[in-house]
Design a binder for these strands. Structure first.
Length: 185
DNA sequence: GCAGAGATCAGCT
DNA sequence: GCTGATCTCTGCC
């Protein structure tokens, strides 16, 4: 399956968020492969988006949002959780990223159960911090290049039907923008 | 089935 | 010192 090129990520952040639905997130650990179809995303932009981490300018945590597109932005939150984003924006913006909120597990489901230490299939990767745990994504993958990495990347996926647009989850400011996107499989 | 507490870090006031 | 792009476990409001 073809890895998404850099040009895929150098378009408007909201457009990239929609287009990532149905694509495949792949993670290699040793000789094992873990993968899943992306089923929910959220766009976070820059100065026009008060909910974005980049809104207030560069910090130690968010600096890759201002760097090259197609890079993994992973942040630590609530003292225990990691969330995974792909840096994406067009030339009108200096920062932007797409949060991957949910996956449909494909390969390596056994590994995911092990990583998550649970037994219910439904709770495997249906939340941003759940999928990072299932795929063993941590700060070590911060700044990884998704277009050239051998251990963490995104490829072409499946054809999708209808996309649902909703307010983003867990934010106060910017809740009027419908930048949460979802598909049913 | 749903509300509330707890975990405990980076960034802001 | 408080808040959050969260999840899990507990107890019944």
């Amino acid at each position: 399956m073809k890895v998404l090129p850099r040009s895929f990520y150098s378009r408007d952040t909201v457009k990239v968020a929609r287009d990532l639905l149905g694509k495949k997130l792949v993670r290699k650990i040793g000789n094992r492969t873990i993968s899943g179809i992306i089923t929910e995303t959220e766009a976070y932009r820059y100065k026009d988006d008060p909910a974005s981490h980049a809104f207030g300018g560069v910090t130690e945590r968010n600096k890759v949002m201002f760097g090259q597109v197609g890079i993994a932005y992973i942040y630590f939150t609530y003292g225990m959780h990691y969330c995974f984003n792909a840096v994406a924006r067009n030339s009108h913006y200096d920062a932007g990223a797409v949060l991957i909120r949910a996956l449909k597990p494909e390969l390596g489901i056994k590994e995911m159960f092990k990583n998550r230490k649970i037994n219910s299939f439904n709770n495997l990767t249906n939340g941003p911090a759940k999928l990072t745990q299932a795929m063993r994504i941590t700060k070590k993958q911060y700044g990884e290049d998704l277009t050239s990495s051998a251990t963490l990347y995104i490829t072409e996926g499946i054809k999708i039907r209808k996309i649902g647009a909703n307010p983003r989850i867990g934010i106060k400011n910017g809740a009027d923008m419908l930048w949460n996107f979802k598909i049913e499989i």
